[in-house]
Computed example of a mutant assay.
Amino acid sequence: MYLSVSRGKKPGLFSTAQLRQNGEGKAIEQWQVPRGPEDLSYDGHNRWMWGLGEYVGYRTVYAMRV
């Protein structure tokens, strides 16, 4: 699973996570992304994860190879 987490005025986090059978899990890897990360879109053919930041003054579109 991939997820993004906003941390207020700090850079956001992009994480991979693995869930156990009971539905619990934890982040396995984390990378910093621009402030206010929101939506994610995955391009499975090329293995790119696209994201965007929605904070005023920090509206960015970014891509990462996953």
Score class of each variant (00 low, 15 high):
residue 16 T to Q: 10
residue 48 W to S: 06
residue 18 Q to H: 11
residue 30 Q to Y: 06
residue 10 K to M: 15
residue 64 M to A: 08
residue 21 Q to N: 13
residue 1 M to H: 07
residue 40 L to G: 03
residue 55 Y to C: 02
residue 46 N to V: 06
residue 29 E to K: 07
residue 42 Y to W: 08
residue 4 S to H: 14
residue 28 I to G: 10
residue 35 R to Y: 10
residue 65 R to F: 00
residue 29 E to N: 09
residue 51 G to W: 00
residue 49 M to T: 01
residue 53 G to H: 02
residue 49 M to P: 00
residue 41 S to W: 04
residue 42 Y to I: 12
residue 5 V to Q: 14
residue 56 V to T: 13
residue 58 Y to V: 05
residue 51 G to F: 00
residue 39 D to A: 13
residue 62 Y to F: 15
residue 44 G to F: 05
residue 61 V to Q: 03
residue 14 F to A: 08
residue 48 W to Y: 12
residue 47 R to K: 10
residue 2 Y to S: 08
residue 46 N to D: 07
residue 49 M to C: 01
residue 6 S to F: 02
residue 33 V to E: 02
residue 17 A to M: 15
residue 38 E to I: 00
residue 57 G to E: 05
residue 34 P to C: 09
residue 10 K to E: 15
residue 18 Q to W: 04
residue 61 V to G: 03
residue 50 W to L: 14
residue 37 P to S: 02
residue 30 Q to M: 13
residue 5 V to N: 10
residue 27 A to M: 07
residue 53 G to D: 03
residue 22 N to M: 03
residue 26 K to T: 15
residue 31 W to E: 14
residue 43 D to S: 06
residue 36 G to W: 05
residue 59 R to I: 09
residue 61 V to R: 03
residue 34 P to I: 07
residue 17 A to Y: 04
residue 33 V to K: 05
residue 56 V to R: 06
residue 1 M to A: 04
residue 20 R to T: 13
residue 32 Q to I: 07
residue 65 R to Y: 06
residue 14 F to R: 15
residue 29 E to H: 12
residue 29 E to M: 07
residue 39 D to M: 13
residue 37 P to H: 03
residue 41 S to I: 05
residue 31 W to H: 15
residue 65 R to C: 01
residue 10 K to D: 14
residue 56 V to E: 13
residue 23 G to P: 00
residue 29 E to L: 09
residue 35 R to W: 08
residue 37 P to E: 03
residue 2 Y to D: 03
residue 28 I to N: 12
residue 8 G to D: 11
residue 44 G to W: 05
residue 17 A to T: 11
residue 27 A to K: 04
residue 6 S to E: 11
residue 53 G to T: 04
residue 4 S to Y: 01
residue 54 E to C: 02
residue 57 G to S: 09
residue 19 L to A: 11
residue 12 G to K: 06
residue 21 Q to R: 13
residue 48 W to D: 04
residue 16 T to H: 02
residue 28 I to Y: 02
residue 59 R to Q: 13
residue 9 K to Q: 12
residue 47 R to D: 11
residue 61 V to N: 02
residue 26 K to E: 15
residue 33 V to A: 06
residue 36 G to C: 08
residue 41 S to N: 10
residue 41 S to V: 10
residue 2 Y to P: 03
residue 58 Y to S: 13
residue 18 Q to R: 15
residue 26 K to G: 11
residue 29 E to A: 09
residue 35 R to I: 14
residue 63 A to T: 08
residue 44 G to R: 13
residue 11 P to H: 12
residue 47 R to N: 11
residue 16 T to W: 02
residue 22 N to G: 00
residue 55 Y to A: 12
residue 24 E to V: 12
residue 41 S to A: 13
residue 14 F to D: 01
residue 3 L to T: 13
residue 58 Y to R: 08
residue 63 A to M: 11
residue 54 E to M: 11
residue 46 N to G: 02
residue 51 G to S: 07
residue 44 G to I: 03
